[in-house]
Design a protein around this nucleic acid. Structure first.
Lengths: 153, 153
DNA sequence: TGTGAAAAGCATTAGGC
DNA sequence: GCCTAATGCTTTTCACA
């Protein structure tokens, strides 16, 4: 796929705000008829600009509103240990995000739990048992001040 | 809204994976016909369990793949300054997330930029000019190891 | 690339169990 | 609660500018 024009960007911008709009409604907002919007949309999906469509759930209501950012140092920084850690982390459902980062820690994890008690046991019984993990520092989220679910394009 | 049964959770779980499923497809997955699924969905939306439906875009392809976690200390920790900071932060499009956190910093920001050069200027011209901001520490994302876009329910 | 019309399929409501 | 059946929209395709 070559390049995106103004309408493409407008479509993407609109959909990352509300993915439930019908092609027709979307078409109205970008001043086109349904057909070209439909085709652009397919182009954008196939081109990988749209990765997926998701429903954003309310973690609080689903008893997973206790959020922690956890910084992790590997037991030793080599490729094998890093590979092991990233593989293990994929299968831990409480860990919703994991980034390899610069600085004095190696990884930053975002973790969702029901409460502090649960988290404490999670550290002891899950994270604490990973061999490739050296040390760990938890930072608790007291309030979500902003969450855009989208990027500014 | 009272409590969620197995089918409700299954619906939520499915939709946070793929929000584009038709009611019909969704119904097939939970072994019901369209009507009850349609009604449950409405109940879940109105009950606030589903906050919104969004398209997840590819930040890399849209030239916003340079991601930074930035920890911020307020110039002074009082209510007025905190309120000012959180208000200012809402209007900065590069900041896609902002959390009030425990520990030696007050806030954790997630920032999307095109590249390091852009980020450097962003720090100088935008973040650096916020009065309520005391100090700041940038942690660069070298790799996104895991990103679930959903919680484990 | 775009438009508009037509076919195929879905969301949504109604009526009954 | 659930189902099936009907209706009015949408999506999707096609012919054409």
């Amino acid at each position: 796929m070559e390049t995106l024009d103004k309408k493409d960007l407008q479509i993407l911008r609109t959909l990352q705000e509300n993915a439930r709009l019908t092609t027709k409604e979307l078409a109205a907002r970008v001043n086109l008829s349904s057909t070209p919007v439909f085709e652009r949309l397919r182009r954008l999906e196939n081109g990988g600009y749209i990765k997926k469509y998701i429903a954003v759930l309310d973690a609080e209501k689903l008893n997973l509103g206790f959020v922690v950012f956890c910084r992790v140092k590997l037991s030793k920084l080599n490729k094998e240990i890093a590979t092991d850690f990233t593989r293990v982390i994929q299968d831990i459902p409480e860990v919703t995000e994991c980034y390899n980062i610069s600085g004095s820690y190696d990884y930053l994890l975002k973790i969702h739990a029901p409460n502090m008690k649960y988290y404490q046991e999670f550290i002891l019984n899950v994270l604490g048992t990973i061999d490739s993990l050296g040390s760990l520092e938890s930072t608790f989220v007291m309030d979500e001040v902003k969450h855009d679910y989208g990027i500014h394009i």
